[in-house]
Design a protein around this nucleic acid. Structure first.
Lengths: 204, 204, 204, 204
DNA sequence: TATGAATGAGCCTTCATTCAT
DNA sequence: CATGAATGAAGGCTCATTCAT
C-alpha cells in the first residue's frame, strides 16, 4: 500500500505531503458522514476541488485512502500511549493519562475515529490490513496491562477485568458518535468521568 | 415502506411471512459480515437460494430489507422495555431487568444489532427512517428515565447522569462486536457486570 | 475462465449458448477490425444490440471474450488435425489434407484467426492463457510430425525441416490478412499451392 | 505528423536527434512486447527515465512515435531495395539480394518490425498513415517486379506468381516472431533458405 | 530542457431493479 | 411463485496530454 510515486525533491515533496494530508482529511470527513462505500470518488473530487486524475495523484486508490486514515489515527495514538506507560507512575494515574490522551485524540481526529470504528468489514479480513489490526490490538493490550498492573499493585481489584476492558472500549469508541465540537463537556471531563467509573468499579 | 403486496389468503400469507423472515435473517447475517452497501443482491440470491426476481417478491427493495431488519429488532425490544418499566419496582432493579432483556435481545439478534449499529448513515438523515430513529430515541429515554428515577428516589446519585447514560449505551452497543456464541460469559453475566458498574458509579 | 453462471434448464441453456455464440462472433469481427484493446465495450454493445449489463451476462469479462474466440478456433481445428493424422496415409497426402482443413478453417473463422494471430501479447505471458498456448503448440507439433514422417518414409527430404515449418506457419498465418470472401482463389487452391511449394522444397 | 519544434542550432539539434532516437527505440521495444495500445506513456517514462513532460519534447504524441517507428523501418529498407533492383543482374540473383537485405533489416530492427506488423489497424485506415501504406506497397511491388522479370527472362515460371508472393510475404513477416538474437540460424541462412524455396517453386 | 501536477474523457465492470415467460 | 435476461446509471480507475514552474 505504497504512495503512487511521490516526488523526490524536498520542496515538492513537502507540498505533496501537505496536499495529500488535505485530501485524507477531506476524505475522512466524508467517509464519516456517509460511510466509506457510500462515498464516491465523485464526492471526493467535489470536496477537494481536484479532478479525478489529480486526486489519484495523491491517493493511489480509494482503499489506500481508508488505510491512510486509519494509519494517521493509530500511529500517533499508539506512540503517545507507549510514552505514557513507559513512565514510572501508579496504574490508576496512568489510566487517567491514557484516557485523556485517547479522548484528546478523538477530539482532534473525530472523523478518522468514526471511519475507523465503522469500517471494520474492510479492516477485519483482508491480508493488507494486518498492520492496522495489529495497531488496534497493541493499543488494547496497553490498556489491559495498565489495568492488570493495578491489580498486581493491589490498588485495583476488578470483578472481571476482561469485561471491564470491553466496557471501557465500548464507551470510548462510542464517543465520536455523540461528541459535538462545542458541546457541554470538554474531553478532559469525559476522560475523567470514564476514569472514575473504572476506578470505582475497581475499588478494592 | 410498505410490503410488496403480500398475499391475502391466510395459509399463503403464513408461508409468505415465514419465507420473508428467512430472507431477512439471511440478509442480516450478510449485512453484518460485509456491510449493507458491500452486500449485493447477488450475494443475497446466493445465500437464499432464490433468484433475483424471486427475492424481490419478499423484499420490495434492498433498503426495505434494511428497514425490516431494524424494525424486527427495535419493536420487540421496546415492547419489553415498556413492560418492564410499567411494573412497580425500584429503579436499580428495573435497570438490571432492562439490561438483561437488552442483552438477551442482543444475543438473539446479534446480526440485526450489528447492522443497526453500523448503518447509522442510512438511518440518520432520510425522512423514511424517522420511525426507526424514534424507536431508538424512545429506548434511550426509557433508560434515562430509570436512571433519573433512581436519583429522585435517592437510591442513585450520578456525577453526570447524561455522561453515564452515554457510557452505558457505548458499552452495550459494543457487545455484538465481541460476543461469541459460546463465549466465556453468558449474557446475563454481562448484563449484571454492566449493571454493577452503573450502580457503583451511582452509589450515593 | 468460467461462464458467469449459465442457466441450467436445457431450453434456456440452448438459447444462452446461441446468444453467447453470437456475441463472440460479433466480438471477433470487431477485434479483428480494430484490435482487441482498441475495441471498447461500447463498441460491442453497439454491435450486439445488448446493453452493457446484458452483454456481461454472456461474456464474464472482455478478456474471457478473447479467450473464447481463441478456444472456438483452436479446439475444432486441433480435433480435425488429430483425426487426419490418425488415419493411415502417406505423409505428403496427410500434409495436403491438413492444409486443406486448416485453410477451410481460416475461411470459416477468418476473424477469429486474425484476432488470435494479433493478440499474441495477451496470449503470450499470462498464466491463464496456458491452455491456448498449449493448443497452438500441439497443432504445430502435428505439422512437424507429418513432415518428419515424410523424411522417415524417404518421400521427403528437407534442407532444413525446422525452417520449412516456420515458413509454412508464416505463409498460412498471413492468409487471413489478404483473403477476401469472394476472391480470385478458393481456399482449396491456396492450400494446394502452399502444399506444392512444400513438396517441391522437400522433393528428394 | 511533424516534429514538435526541434531545436535549430546544430549542436543542440544533434543531441535532440540522438535522444529522440533513443526514445523511439525504447518505444519500439515496449510496443513490440506489449502492443502499442497496451503500452502507456507511464511505461515509456519508466523505460526512458524521462518524465511525461520531457518525453513529449521528443515525441509530439504517442501516435507520432508509432509513425516514426514505421518510418525508421521502411525508409532505409526501401532505399536499399531500390538500389538492388537498379543494378543490372539476373532476377534470381536480385531476389536473393533482396531477401538478404530484408532479413538483415529484420535482424537490426526486430522490434520495429514486430510493431509494424502488429499495428495494422492503426496503419490501415487513417489518412495520416498514407505515406507508410505507400512505402509498404512500393516494397511489395519491387518484389513482385523481380519475380515478374524472372518469368519474362524465362528463368522462372510460377504456377501462380501472386500466390507465391503472398507466401513469401507471410514467411518473412513471420520471422520477427521467432527469430532469437543468438539463434540456430543466421539471417543469411534464413534468407537463402526462403530464396531456395521460391526458386524451386519457380523452377521452369 | 525537464519536471510533475493536473485535467477530463473514457475505460471496464457492477449493481439494483424490472419484466416477459 | 419464480426464473433469469436485460437495463442503464454509476462505480473506481487509467491515460494521453498540457502547462506552470
Amino acid at each position: 500500500m505504497a504512495d503512487p510515486s511521490p516526488p523526490l525533491r524536498p520542496a515538492l515533496r513537502a507540498r505533496y505531503d501537505r496536499r495529500q494530508h488535505e485530501v485524507v482529511s477531506a476524505a475522512a470527513r466524508l467517509f464519516a458522514e456517509r460511510g466509506y462505500q457510500a462515498t464516491s470518488i465523485g464526492d471526493l473530487t467535489e470536496a477537494t476541488g481536484l479532478a479525478a486524475g489529480g486526486l489519484y495523484h495523491y491517493i493511489g486508490s480509494k482503499e489506500q485512502l481508508l488505510f491512510r486514515i486509519c494509519d494517521e489515527l493509530l500511529e500517533p495514538l499508539l506512540d503517545e500511549a507507549r510514552t505514557i506507560v513507559a513512565r514510572d507512575a501508579a496504574a490508576a494515574e496512568q489510566l487517567r493519562e491514557l484516557l485523556r490522551a485517547w479522548l484528546a485524540h478523538i477530539e482532534r481526529h473525530r472523523f478518522h475515529m468514526l471511519v475507523f470504528a465503522q469500517e471494520r468489514h474492510v479492516i477485519a479480513h483482508d491480508q493488507r490490513w494486518q498492520k492496522v489490526r495489529r495497531q488496534r490490538k497493541d493499543f488494547v493490550q496497553i490498556l489491559d496491562e495498565v489495568l492488570a498492573r493495578g491489580e498486581a499493585e493491589g490498588t485495583l481489584a476488578f470483578a472481571d477485568r476482561r469485561l471491564l476492558l470491553l466496557a471501557l472500549l465500548g464507551m470510548v469508541n462510542y464517543v465520536p458518535q455523540w461528541l459535538r465540537p462545542r458541546g457541554r463537556l470538554a474531553v478532559e471531563q469525559i476522560a475523567d468521568g470514564f476514569c472514575d467509573l473504572i476506578l470505582r468499579a475497581g475499588a478494592p
